[in-house]
Amino acid sequence: TTLHFDLDGKKLQYTGVSEEIARLVEELKRRGVDLKEIVRILEELLK
């Protein structure tokens, strides 16, 4: 799965993300978590 974000005018793309992580990101968005925080979490998970 590939995730795309537009953060402060920067286009971020994460490829090869598992379905689980993609679902987690969608859930965080639904809960109103700040996009910067979501990206920070995502980068930690993908290390």
Rank of each mutant, 00 (worst) to 15 (best):
I41P: 00
V17S: 01
H4C: 08
I21K: 03
L35D: 12
L12E: 03
R23L: 15
V17H: 00
L45V: 08
L28Y: 10
L46Q: 04
K10V: 14
L35V: 15
L46C: 04
R30A: 15
A22W: 07
D8A: 04
E20I: 05
K36G: 10
L28F: 08
L42M: 06
E27D: 15
L46G: 03
E20D: 13
R30I: 14
L12S: 04
R40N: 13
K47F: 11
R40F: 12
L24F: 13
A22M: 10
A22L: 12
F5D: 02
K29T: 11
S18A: 07
E43L: 04
K47S: 13
E44L: 10
K29S: 11
V39K: 02
H4W: 11
F5A: 01
I38M: 04
Y14A: 01
T15L: 07
K10N: 11
E20T: 08
R40E: 11
E27Y: 06
A22K: 06
K36P: 09
D34W: 05
L12P: 01
Y14M: 03
D34G: 08
K29H: 14
Q13F: 11
K47W: 10
L28K: 09
L7Q: 03
I21D: 08
V25M: 06
L7G: 01
K47I: 11
R23Y: 13
S18N: 08
E37P: 03
L35E: 10
T1K: 14
L24W: 12
E19W: 09
K29N: 10
K36W: 12
K29V: 15
Q13D: 08
L12A: 04
E26N: 11
V33C: 05
R30G: 15
K11N: 09
E20P: 12
I21S: 06
I21V: 12
K47D: 11
H4D: 15
V17N: 01
E37N: 07
D34T: 09
L24M: 13
T2H: 08
V39S: 01
G9C: 03
D34C: 13
E37V: 09
E43M: 04
G9W: 00
D6C: 07
L28D: 05
L42R: 00
E20Q: 09
I21Q: 10
E27M: 07
E19H: 14
T15F: 10
K36E: 10
F5R: 00
L12K: 05
D6P: 00
E20K: 07
L35W: 02
A22T: 09
G9H: 02
I38E: 00
K11M: 07
K10Y: 07
R31V: 14
I21W: 05
L7K: 00
I38A: 03
S18Q: 05
K29R: 12
K47Y: 12
G32F: 07
L7T: 02
I38V: 14
E44G: 12
T1P: 07
L46V: 06
R31G: 13
L12C: 04
V25L: 06
Y14Q: 00
H4E: 15
D34L: 10
E44V: 11
Q13N: 08
E19C: 03
D34V: 11
T1V: 15
E44S: 12
V33T: 13
L46I: 10
L28H: 12
L42Y: 01
A22Q: 08
L28V: 05
I38L: 07
L28A: 08
E26C: 09
D8T: 02
E44H: 13
K10G: 07
L3I: 15
D8M: 04
L46P: 03
I21E: 04
I41F: 08
K11H: 15
E27C: 09
D6H: 15
L24G: 13
E20S: 09
S18M: 04
H4P: 02
G32T: 06
H4V: 12
E19P: 12
I41N: 08
R23I: 14
K10I: 14
L7D: 04
V39A: 03
D8K: 01
T15E: 15
L45N: 10
F5T: 01
V17Q: 01
R30P: 03
L28Q: 09
H4N: 11
V33Y: 06
I38T: 05
H4S: 08
G32Y: 07
Q13L: 11
L45I: 10
R23D: 13
K10C: 09
G32P: 04
T1F: 11
E26P: 03
I41L: 13
D34R: 07
R31F: 06
E37A: 09
T1H: 15
V17T: 02
G9T: 02
G32K: 12
T15D: 13
G16D: 12
G16P: 02
R40I: 09
L12Q: 04
F5C: 02
Q13T: 15
L3S: 00
T1C: 03
L42S: 01
G32W: 05
T2D: 15
L28T: 05
D34A: 12
D34Y: 06
D8P: 02
L24R: 14
K36S: 13
K47H: 13
D8R: 00
L24K: 14
Q13A: 11
